[in-house]
Design a binder for these strands. Structure first.
Lengths: 212, 212, 212, 212
DNA sequence: TATGAATGAGCCTTCATTCAT
DNA sequence: AATGAATGAAGGCTCATTCAT
């Protein structure tokens, strides 16, 4: 668990241990004592390096976000919107389901989405809004409009919902006996499904709009 | 001190107060003292009536589920699958977004989905699986198949994902400035969108399947 | 130390133990653990009965004051001012040096006078100001004036200073090898000295004032 | 980082900051972290330069005493005792109320007098006893005796009490709305009052003694 | 000489829970 | 059936101090 080549500085060891425990048991359930025991550091180290239990949480959240944003950038690109949607969905799924980040990241995010802390609101602005805006641009192009109409937003949420469902409701999905995609190819299969499903869904909505 | 004619019995008062507080602050964050203070009962009442803080939680979860299941029943029906899907989506959205249940139910469920307790697993079997099976049946009919293929399940999850997104990610959606449907008509508008989007999505997927 | 006839309720046992420890070691130096160990009660009892460590402190201060005020009332009386001063000094010394209250009361008050807490300010209004006003009245009569002139106030403080010195500077006085009055008769001897010294001091000041 | 020409050396900066904080918040209340932050030095500097938090406290106490003793020397002098008393009172008040030393010195001393530390006992021998002996000599001469009788000691304490009251009970005096002398002339006015009051007080006591 | 990361003891407080009434 | 005083474990946090650098 610890890379023998690099000494893994104390703050990093704390963040690694804490992230896992926070995700497993929740913020309150997890005690600083536990974290320090797992990280093999003194109990005062958290307060020294992060000032607070909450400070530690914020640091973990931020680092987690930074990693995933850097790893799977989602930016506005050129090209036909159908292709851009495919890329978007693929990147987004890799970002939230891929192995590029610790396994506990998902649970942490799901918990935050359901019950966001102050620390999270900042991250929404940093990451969620830009991502959402990129998606809105793609959907607008697909629907041949330049405005964020109710339809555009509803479609964007439909797409996001399909993706995030696997992350937020993972425990329930597993309880229902459905396997969660984890490997690169499984995730890409899912991306293809959601892309296709959504492109067709949009074509129907567009038709309705055209009628109206 | 307690008027037996007009006020709820002690256990009900406790459950009402606790449900709200659990949803607002989380299970751990909420103390028995707080609950009893809000319910205007003795501090020992929770342990007396529910054996445990956890026992109280289970009771609340169960009661909440019972209410919503009775209020918006989701059962297999006859008729063309397109129509059955429309009914399903409408009922499901009303169930999770409607005002028929305390406002805090959603947060509670979202938290449970992200991090299920033992109490929740039972409820999944009781409620989530039957609901999922009804949806699978509709999707199978829409896709002209009798088996729960990968496609069928993926489509079902795409539909569920669209619906539950509004519940699970409500705080983030609101942070993005998008209004959450709350009135009956708003919810029905959303149901129409999701139904239409999904029906068109399915038609595309079906076409692809037919090709393969 | 504990009256075997009365069971000494928990809060009283805590206050007795805490008063002693606070006076001995100071507020901060004294830990709730110590207090509870000495009082033979659970560590949570302080928070249960007094909400706070500070709440306990306030309660002790208040009770201590109440006791001494009731025991040695200082009120405006009739009679020749010389006699009234004698009574005042005697009562005041008995109040602060007498055995009517726990031995630690003095240290507590001395510490408060040098570094008053918020709780103390209230007590000053409750007890110190009335006492001071009674003394001012006596001094005014002795000096044949009806106003609180600078001289009147200076004389009043001279009298108070002589009395309180034995309380505030007790440790230093003892370090100098001078015995502190403790018995009733010792205290009354001191009261006679201070009364006589002050009456003569006043006569001189009055003479000066008359000249001016 | 540190200009050796204009700024105090590290130990001095620490003592200055610590003295103020100790007086303001008390010894325990003040943390080494706070002191070092105010003194702009490393957190380990206190332990490095003074071995201990307590070592720092002793150093501050000693330095403070040295300064005040050098500034307002109190030594046995020649001349009529009435005049010597006037000088004594004036010097003593300037010593404890004057601006020749940091404002926090008074609080520190008052706290020590109420609850002396080991460090303080030494200072009593160094400073308090000589001062007291000088005063005893003056009072003996005023009372025409060569022995430290009970009366002599009582009178000496009466004089000291009047002076120290302004220092020890300063917060209470201020709470009562009475201004504390601070300027040179205010202090000298007070000195005149105490001197006059005490001289007249002594004359009465002497008369009583002569009678007995 | 001086630093600052790291330590571990101890602080006050809150918690769910129990038990005599 | 219901109370509330009392319990003891555990919580987050701050502290003075040390030690490798």
């Amino acid at each position: 668990m610890m890379n023998p080549l690099t000494t893994n500085a104390t703050p990093d060891r704390i963040m690694d241990a804490a992230g896992e425990l926070f995700a497993e048991n929740g913020f309150r359930q997890t005690s600083i004592r536990d974290i320090c025991a797992h990280a093999n550091v003194n109990i005062a180290a958290v307060n020294y390096h992060f000032r607070d239990k909450e400070g530690l949480y914020e640091a973990i959240l931020q680092r987690s976000f930074d990693k995933c944003v850097n790893c799977y950038p989602i930016v506005a690109t050129d090209g036909p919107p159908e292709e851009r949607l495919a890329i978007f969905v693929r990147m987004f799924l890799l970002r939230i389901l891929g192995s590029g980040q610790p396994a506990w990241h998902g649970k942490l995010m799901a918990a935050e989405m359901a019950n966001p802390t102050a620390a999270f609101s900042k991250l929404v602005e940093q990451a969620a809004r830009p991502t959402h805006n990129v998606l809105l641009g793609i959907v607008r192009d697909l629907m041949h409009t330049t405005e964020n109409t109710y339809q555009v937003e509803a479609v964007a949420l439909s797409i996001m919902g399909q993706c995030l469902f696997y992350k937020h409701s993972r425990p329930v999905i597993e309880l229902l006996g459905i396997p969660i995609p984890v490997t690169q190819s499984e995730i890409e299969s899912l991306a293809e499904h959601i892309t296709q499903f959504s492109l067709d869904g949009i074509s129907g909505v567009r038709a309705v709009v055209a009628h109206a």
